[in-house]
Amino acid sequence: MAAGAPMGAGTTSDIYKGDAARLMMPTWLIIGIFLLAPVIMMGVYSFLTKEFRGGVVWEFSFAAYDQFFFDRGLFGDDPPTLEWTYIGIFWRSIWQAGLATIMCLLIGFPTAWFIATRDPKSRSIWLFLITIPYWVNLLIRTVSMKFLIRDTGPLNEFLLAAGVIDTPLGLINTDFAVQLGLFYSYLPFMVLPIYAAVERYDFALSEAASDLYAGTWTILRLVIFPVVKPGIIAGCILVFVPSLGAFLAPDLLGGAKTFMIGSLIEEQFKGSAGNWPFGAAAAMILLTLVLVILLIYARAQNKVEDR
């Protein structure tokens, strides 16, 4: 009975076929002019010469990239050796973002799993609870975290009063504080995709597997992991990428020791100490890094779909 699809349902028809260009035009214009063009312009700026009071002189130069990668001594005439300062800042950013991602995964995976295995009604409430903080202003969240963990903050006061510790923990201005801040900023990005993957998993499959004599470990490895893996990878990228270029958490929670890419770039555009071409070059390098990660991800994703 009722064979055949209902009229039109399911097919994306082309009611506005001739209007596509007109409808897309605002998007093309706004994002094209005010994001794509600026990014290209930034690329151009990274090859210009710096002006001493901020801004640029329109003269082609590799100076920005040269400064980033090479040390030529105080007067710039020594033979170039690799300059570790900025590469080190990038490296520390990667390291910090990586640790924050691992923290998110360790806490986020069980949370996502737990929520996805509730009944549908309580699921949406749990999810809602997890996502609310994400919508609270990031600055306010970071400030709150700073307030909580600083040496004279409620956490230390409480622990001191309870006699658990006798000197403040000294959390603030440490690498760990930055990781905590990043973790706090982006945790929902880990939970949501893993949740989506686990929710799609049909637990009858693991029953079928155990019916076929698979133990718990085997089920986890061979049946569940392949289903959940895409969610884990997506979550890791969603946390890692914004952590890499984060500004607020390192700036407010970390000290001078925990300088990250975001702060390095920001510094180049503030006041007269700035160096616009160098900032632009650092931003280009960050952008390249992120696009490479996304590209690898997209490639892997396509391969999975092709199969």
């Binding site: 930034m42 801004g55 616009w276």
Partner: peptide, 22 residues
């Protein structure tokens, strides 16, 4: 293009906008 603002790191967007407007 629609998703570009999600892919470009915030600090890069910030720098690019500043450079562009100036």
């Amino acid at each position: 293009l629609i998703n570009l603002p999600l892919m470009v790191p915030e600090v890069v967007t910030a720098v690019a906008s500043l450079v562009f407007f100036s």
